Structures are given as C-alpha cells and as structure tokens.
Computed example of a mutant assay.
Amino acid sequence: MSIQSLKNGGYIVYFRHGEATVGRDQPFVDFDRCETQRNLNETGRRQAILIGEVFRKESIPLEPFIISSPYCRALNTAKLAFSNKPVRIERSLARVVNLSEYPTITDNEKNQILNDLKRVLEIPTSLGENRVVFGHSFPKGIGLGNIEYMVGVIIKPKGQGKGYEEVDRINFNKYIYS
C-alpha cells in the first residue's frame, strides 16, 4: 500500500506521538499538568509538524477532527501536526502506556486496554475521509506492536463490534524530502 491509497479515504492512520524527553512520567500523571509527564523534545516537535506537512502536500482527505491520547506528548503532536483541526481526547488511549510501563498488569487489565483500543479502531471513517489517531507504541506482539516515530499504522476498520485490520505501515519520513 502506498500513501496514494489514503486519497480514497476509509482508513485510520495511527501514529505514536513524536519523540519525547528521556525518563518516566511521574507516578500520578495529571493530564492537565504537562510537568507531570514526559513531553515532546525538539525532534518530536519537528516530527509532528512534518507529519502534518505530508498530509497537506499529498492532499490526503481527513475527517474534521483528530483523535489523541490525553498525554501531553500525544496531544501536542496532534496540535502541531494539524493546528487547523480540533482534537478529540480519547482517554482510553492513555492506558496503552500501562502495557509498557507496568509489565506486571493482570491479563484482565491487558485485555480491557486492548478491547478499548479495538472500540476506537473499529469505527468506520466518514465517507471519503481518513481518521488520524495519536497515541503510544505497544510492546512487541501486543496490540499494534512497536511503532517507530514517523510511521503510520494503516488500519481498515471493519465496523462496530467487528474489529479492525492492520493493512500496512507507512514511513512518512520518505515523503518529506521527495
């Protein structure tokens, strides 16, 4: 699949937030206080802007809103990439961090996080448009797996209650300088 395929719409493009500062979030993250979290570094801010530039340059049709995890690093990635669109917070995406940060979570908790993700990714897009979601990477073999910076996971939603299909991964870096 190429980026050209996105021009017909019908896909969800899931991105990991831009590169963030090194370290860990504070134990009790306050989503309204970015100082309690890891945040975008300068490279991450540039990555976010470049993602938006690729969508505009390639005239990829988007829904009128962007979806983001409530973590500041994801929310700021969304706002920098698509400053002309409102961002809808999807609180369940925040729990994806628990899969990596707290590997001792129970199977029930892990299943709940993955079921919440499925509910977000199985909803069809508006006709002729794509949906962009900014969230977090996953541990290898879980959910969408490891997601590199600037790589969009292309998802075809199958409908509410029917799941989704990961169709491809596109490295948006290769479209920046071409």
Rank of each mutant, 00 (worst) to 15 (best):
P157Y: 05
V96T: 11
I113H: 11
N115K: 13
I3L: 14
N115I: 00
R38D: 03
P86Q: 06
Y71D: 00
S59Q: 14
I60D: 08
I60V: 07
G9L: 15
V96A: 09
C72E: 11
F65K: 07
G161N: 07
L50A: 14
D25C: 02
L144F: 15
P64A: 11
T43G: 00
N130R: 13
I105S: 03
I170K: 02
P64F: 00
S92G: 04
D25W: 06
L40R: 00
I12N: 03
V96I: 15
I113Q: 05
F15K: 07
D116C: 06
L99Q: 12
S2Y: 12
E122Y: 12
V153H: 02
S69M: 08
G44R: 07
D168E: 14
F31G: 00
F28S: 12
Q160K: 15
S59G: 01
R33W: 03
Y175N: 12
I89K: 06
F55V: 13
R56I: 11
S68N: 06
R169Q: 13
E129M: 13
H136I: 09
V29F: 11
N41V: 04
E42I: 04
G10M: 07
V167H: 01
N76R: 10
E90N: 04
S68W: 06
S126I: 14
P86N: 10
